[in-house]
C-alpha cells in the first residue's frame, strides 16, 4: 500500500495571473494619469497622484464588479482607500527624514562636536563654532530631569500595579491627564513657582525641572504596562515564601521587569529630548559651555535649533538643520534601543 504524500498547498497565495493583473492595473492607471495631466489644465504632482488613485480605484471596482459582484467591488474600493490613508500618513515621515538628511548634511562637520558658540555668531561660516554646549546642556538637563522623574514615575507605577490602593483609579486618571499638559505650561509653572519667587534667574536646573514634569507621565505609564506583564505567580511565590510585600517587589517583581523599566526610561528621554518651548522660557540658553546646572544660563539642543531658525540667515538655518540632524539621530537610537529591549513585536 503506497502512502499518498500530500504536498502542502497555499491556496491563499496569489497566482501569477493575479499579480499580472495588479501590475497591469497600476500601469494602465499611470498611463491614464499622464494623459489626463497632459491633455487637461490640471497640473502638478497632486493631479498625477489624484488621477492615478482614482483610476486604480475605478478599474479595480469594475474588474471585481464584473467578475465577483458588488460586494467584492466595494471591498476592493475600501482596500484601496484605506491603503491611501496609510500612504498619506507616512509620506510626511519620509519627507521629514529626507529633508533633514538633505538640509542637515551641509552643516555637519566633526568640529562642531568640539566647540561652542561663545566666540561665534550664528551667521558665521559653518566651519566655525559648534554645538558642544548644546549637547552638554541637553545631556545635563535631561539627566537631572530623569533623576527627579524616575523615582516618582516608577513609584506611581508600583502604586498602581502592586499596592492597588483606593486611589488607583483617580491616580491613573491624573497621570493620563498629566501627559496632556502642554509643554509650555510646564515652563510657565517653573517660572511662576520657582524662578519668579525664589531664584530670579534662569539656569539649567530649572529646565530639568520642567522636563521632569513632562517625563513623569511617560515613565509612569510605560512602567505600569511593564509591571502588569509580570505574572502574578511570581508575586504569589514571593509572598508564599514568607517575603513581605516590600521584599517581593524589590527582589522579585522589579528585577523581573528590569528591561521593561529601562525601556520606560528611554521612552521618557525620547519624549523630552526635543522639547523646546519650556526650555526657551526657563533655561536661558547660553552660548558657552556651562557644566553647572545651578548657575547661569545653559544651552540645549532644541534651543540651539530654535535660535538658528529665529535668526533667519542661510548659515544660521543650516546650523539649525545640522542640530536637528544630531537630535534626530539621538532620538532614533533611543527609539531603536527601546524597541530592542522590549523585544520588538513580542507584544502583539
Amino acid at each position: 500500500m503506497s502512502t499518498v504524500t500530500v504536498k502542502p498547498g497555499r491556496p491563499w497565495k496569489r497566482t501569477p495571473k493575479q499579480v499580472m493583473s495588479t501590475v497591469l492595473v497600476l500601469l494602465v492607471s499611470a498611463a491614464i494619469s499622464f494623459t489626463a495631466v497632459a491633455a487637461t489644465e490640471m497640473k502638478g504632482k497632486l493631479a498625477y497622484l489624484a488621477i492615478f488613485f482614482i483610476s486604480v480605484v475605478v478599474i479595480n471596482f469594475a474588474e471585481n464588479y464584473f467578475n465577483r459582484g458588488i460586494a467584492a467591488a466595494k471591498d476592493s474600493v475600501s482596500s484601496s482607500v484605506t491603503a491611501a490613508g496609510l500612504v498619506i500618513a507616512v509620506v510626511p515621515i519620509f519627507s521629514i527624514l529626507y529633508t533633514i538628511f538633505d538640509y542637515g548634511r551641509a552643516g555637519l562637520n566633526f568640529n562642531m562636536f568640539l566647540k561652542d558658540m561663545s566666540a561665534n555668531g550664528p551667521n558665521d561660516p559653518l566651519g566655525q563654532g559648534g554645538l558642544l554646549h548644546a549637547l552638554l546642556g541637553s545631556f545635563i538637563m535631561v539627566g537631572f530631569g530623569l533623576l527627579m522623574s524616575l523615582p516618582i514615575g516608577i513609584l506611581t507605577a508600583i502604586y498602581l500595579t502592586e499596592i492597588k490602593g483606593i486611589y488607583s483609579r483617580p491616580i491613573r486618571f491624573l497621570v493620563q491627564a498629566m501627559s496632556g499638559v502642554p509643554s509650555i505650561v510646564a515652563g510657565l509653572f517653573i517660572l511662576s513657582a520657582i524662578i519668579f519667587p525664589i531664584t530670579k534667574s534662569s539656569s539649567g536646573f530649572m529646565g530639568s525641572l520642567a522636563l521632569a514634569i513632562l517625563m513623569i507621565p511617560t515613565i509612569a505609564r510605560t512602567s505600569e504596562e511593564v509591571l502588569l506583564l509580570i505574572p502574578d505567580d511570581l508575586r504569589e511565590a514571593g509572598v508564599a515564601l514568607g517575603g513581605t510585600q516590600w521584599r517581593t517587589v524589590s527582589l522579585i517583581v522589579v528585577p523581573a521587569a528590569k528591561s521593561g523599566l529601562v525601556t520606560a526610561i528611554i521612552l521618557g528621554i525620547a519624549r523630552v529630548a526635543g522639547e523646546t518651548a519650556p526650555l526657551i522660557l526657563v533655561s536661558g540658553g547660553g552660548d558657552a559651555v556651562n557644566a553647572n546646572p545651578f548657575e547661569s544660563p545653559m544651552g540645549s539642543l532644541p534651543f540651539y535649533i530654535w535660535k538658528g531658525f529665529i535668526f533667519g540667515t542661510t548659515e544660521s538655518i543650516a546650523r539649525s538643520w545640522a542640530g536637528i540632524f544630531v537630535l534626530l539621530v539621538i532620538i532614533f537610537f533611543l527609539f531603536i534601543a527601546a524597541r530592542m529591549l522590549s523585544g520588538s513585536g513580542s507584544k502583539k
Partner: peptide, 24 residues
C-alpha cells in the same frame, strides 16, 4: 514604609497638577 512611600509617589501627580493650578 513601602506602602507609604509608594502612595506618596503615586499621589505626586495630583500634587504636581495642583501646584501648577495654584501657582499659575
Amino acid at each position: 514604609v513601602f506602602r507609604g512611600v509608594a502612595t506618596g509617589g503615586g499621589l505626586s501627580s495630583l500634587v504636581i497638577l495642583g501646584l501648577i493650578l495654584i501657582f499659575l
